[in-house]
Amino acid sequence: MIISFFLNGNPVEIDTMPHHRSVDLLRESFQIKSIQQSCSDALCGTCLILMDDRPVLSCLVPAFELKFKDIWTMEGISSKKSYADIVGGYKSAHVQLCNSCAPARALATEALLRQTLRPSAELVRETAESVNCSCCSTRRVMDAILRAAKLREKRIHES
C-alpha cells in the first residue's frame, strides 16, 4: 500500500504493509531516531509523535492511519527557533532527563504549547505524566513545562 503524508513539514510517500506499526515505519524507513518502541503497549510514551497537532502513541498507530496526516517528530520541532523555549524551560528547572524519554517529554511539551500558553495545573500535570518514567521528579517537569510556556509567550510577544 502506498501511503503519503507530511513528515516534519515535507511531503513523503512510502510503500508499506498497512498494519506496519508507525513507530517502526518512521524509525526504519525515515530514520526518525527521536521515537522509540519501548513497551509496544501504550505504557511508556517514548513513541510519542504529533499527528495533526495532537500527541499520539505511534506504537498504537498502524501505518495506513498516517495517510494524508501532518506528522511532526522532534527532528522537525527541534529545527525551529521556538525549540529553544522548551530546552530553556527544562534547563532552568534543573530536570535530569534520561536519554530515552527526553524527546518524548519535549514533544509532549510542544503539543501542550501549541494548544495553550496558559495551561491549567491539571493540563500541566497530564502533560508531565504522559511519559511514564519513574526516574525524574514530576514536580520539576511541571515546573519546566510552565517555564517553557512563559518563554514561548515572551517569544510570541516579541515577534
Binding site: I32, K33, S34, I35, T73, M74, E75, I77, S78, Y83, A84, I86, V87, Y90, K91, L97, N99, A102, P103, R105, A106
Partner: peptide, 8 residues
C-alpha cells in the same frame, strides 16, 4: 540537553 531532547 538540547541534543538529548531533540533525539540527536
Amino acid at each position: 540537553l538540547s541534543e538529548k531532547m531533540s533525539g540527536r
